[in-house]
């Protein structure tokens, strides 16, 4: 009996240690003073470019919105994944249903740390794993722009997720593995400014890797296969390999890539398709310099074999 009791105590202690470790590892972590200081005041005009580069409207405005409706960020677009259905929230400046009550600091914590104003983890369906690599000043610009948009009332439905993915605290563990503000592709000293700018756009606001990089069983990006293409999150298709090794784009010049992002036509005059249609519309709103920078970066990154031939789990959603 004594032995059993000792065992039980040991088990409890271990369980307690496990719980304490889980608690400690999953604490939502906010930005430090240094990053907050780097935010600056923000400029709405520059922020509009970030808004387009990020394609915020594609998930946070109603599906198929055109014109001014793109700027009504009421949420509601669904993303059906193997973990369940994520629903984009209202991020209009509405004080009650949107993020009208959020300070720049709150906003930056969401963008760069995936932490909501109430201190909870956000799900990485909101691609802060990419946004974490943005320049703090760009985040402040985006905030300045978004405060100029119309407040829209109405809450989007909650996410509909399976256990254990419905436990927000668990995202803390996920972040330990996948959240970093370090660039994915290390570029040598003396790399042209154009390529660095392209890296900033592609790895950060543009969040290209969220679809073009394959994911691990835990849903995190496999950065060893950066931009190598992946099975589509929704449906049966694949997302192309856009490294220099990729079949779809291997023969494309920098100007071919920039032109595709502007016009939606490939060098063979095929058209953009699938979910890239919405992305290309956003890319067409950027400046020519931005598109050329993206193209220069895509030519500068290491070539990889296709990321969609691997053994990723098939989405069941």
């Amino acid at each position: 009996m004594a032995v059993l009791r000792k065992l039980a105590i040991a088990a409890l202690a271990l369980g307690g240690a496990g719980a304490a470790a889980f608690w400690w590892l999953t604490v939502p972590e906010k930005l430090g003073a240094e990053t907050l200081a780097a935010l600056g005041t923000g400029d709405a005009t520059r922020g509009q470019r970030i808004f387009d580069a990020g394609g915020c409207a594609s998930c946070h405005a109603k599906a198929k919105s055109e014109g001014d409706a793109r700027l009504q960020l009421v949420g509601g677009v669904e993303l059906k994944t193997q973990f369940g259905t994520f629903v984009a929230p209202n991020i209009s400046p509405d004080a009650k249903d949107g993020i009208g009550g959020w300070s720049l600091e709150d906003f930056a914590n969401a963008m760069l740390k995936g932490v909501a104003r109430d201190g909870q983890h956000l799900y990485p369906a909101f691609p802060y794993t990419s946004y974490a690599r943005m320049k703090p000043a760009d985040v402040a610009d985006l905030y300045a722009f978004m405060t100029t948009l119309p407040p829209i009332a109405g809450k989007a439905p909650d996410h509909d997720l399976a256990f254990p993915f419905n436990i927000r605290r668990g995202i803390g563990l996920w972040k330990q593995l996948y959240l970093s503000d370090e660039p994915v592709v290390a570029l040598a000293a003396g790399t042209p400014e154009k390529v660095l700018h392209g890296r900033n756009l592609v790895e950060g606001a543009g969040h290209c890797g969220e679809c073009h990089t394959p994911r691990s069983f835990a849903g995190g990006p496999e950065n060893a296969q950066w931009l190598a293409g992946a099975k589509a999150a929704e449906g049966d298709g694949v997302v192309p390999n856009i490294t220099p090794e990729g079949r779809d784009m291997s023969g494309w010049s920098e100007s071919d890539i920039a032109s595709y992002l502007e016009t939606g036509f490939t060098p063979e005059f095929d058209s953009v398709g699938g979910t890239m249609v919405e992305v290309q519309k956003n890319m067409a709103r950027l400046t020519a310099e931005d598109r050329e920078a993206i193209a220069a970066y895509l030519k500068a990154i290491p070539g990889r074999a296709n990321g969609f031939s691997g053994s990723q789990p098939k989405p069941t959603g």
């Binding site: 694949v238 016009t263 939606g264 398709g273 699938g274 249609v277 919405e278 969609f308």
Partner: peptide, 21 residues
């Protein structure tokens, strides 16, 4: 004109074409 044609290509390919590996 090319913009209108291209948009028509894209809208249909968005919904009704799928890339395969």
């Amino acid at each position: 004109q090319v913009g209108a044609i291209g948009q028509t290509c894209g809208t249909c390919h968005e919904a009704f074409r799928v890339k395969k590996g």
